[in-house]
Design a protein around this nucleic acid. Structure first.
Lengths: 127, 127
DNA sequence: CCGAATCCGCACAGATACTG
DNA sequence: CAGTATCTGTGCGGATTCGG
């Protein structure tokens, strides 16, 4: 998780721990169901809050706003407000966000690919 | 989450919904912090329960067993018990598990790559 | 339409103790 | 050492309300 270059740049102990704990924090933010589903839903496009709510099946108003704030804070989504009435807010992935989306895609493909095997494994385990 | 090819293979309505809900279920199982960290920790090797607990920083006894059961149920980890005394239990990734690990690796690399930009974004957002 | 704030139940997660 | 069980509290997550 740490490159040689960084090892040269950093006074070893304290800062290395800082980087790792920051990485863990980001990982914890990102490795949760709703965040990943939102990122997947945004895809290449731009969606309004209400559209997003329709795309991410089962998400509540609150969870959507919370996760959108979190993603915005980490610079994974851009939030643009059109000060019309009624207001209009659009969300779109930033470049870091799109990069992460590629990995989410991989997880989705993995799910599809192993769907059958997993179902079988469950059957064996449960029975 | 469903490819065009699969759309051709499947009788349309009911079964498609079944597949999707199953996929969502699997996604929810897998897209959580502890599960992904356990998979990452197992890597290519074989670890005992206690070793695993040391590797996955901050996980509790209970969360580790719960997630291991879940991963075993889905066929992502193999669990082998050596009936010695004291007992010895070893965990290792199955092929589906290793395939998933590749995507977890991708997330970790993503984290490292964008660490700085994310930290900056946070600074801007918070300040 | 979007989002902040509040209330509240329930499930998750930690701590502890006990069995094989 | 590994796993289960029970208890407890905290915090997640849903429903609702109000404000911009």
């Amino acid at each position: 998780m740490v490159t040689k270059q960084q090892l040269n740049d950093l006074p070893p102990d304290a800062d290395l721990r800082r980087v790792d704990s920051l990485a863990r924090e980001i990982f914890s933010d990102v490795a949760n169901k709703w965040a990943l589903l939102i990122i997947e839903a945004l895809g290449e496009g731009t969606l309004r809050f209400s559209e997003l709510r329709g795309e991410v099946e089962g998400i509540s108003h609150k969870m959507l706003t919370q996760n959108l704030r979190m993603l915005e804070r980490n610079g994974l989504v851009d939030r643009t407000v059109y000060p019309t009435v009624p207001p209009r807010v659009e969300y779109t992935l930033t470049e870091p966000g799109r990069a992460l989306r590629a990995t989410v895609d991989a997880i989705c493909e993995w799910t599809q690919q192993y769907l059958g095997r997993i179902e079988d494994a469950r059957g064996r385990f449960d029975g």
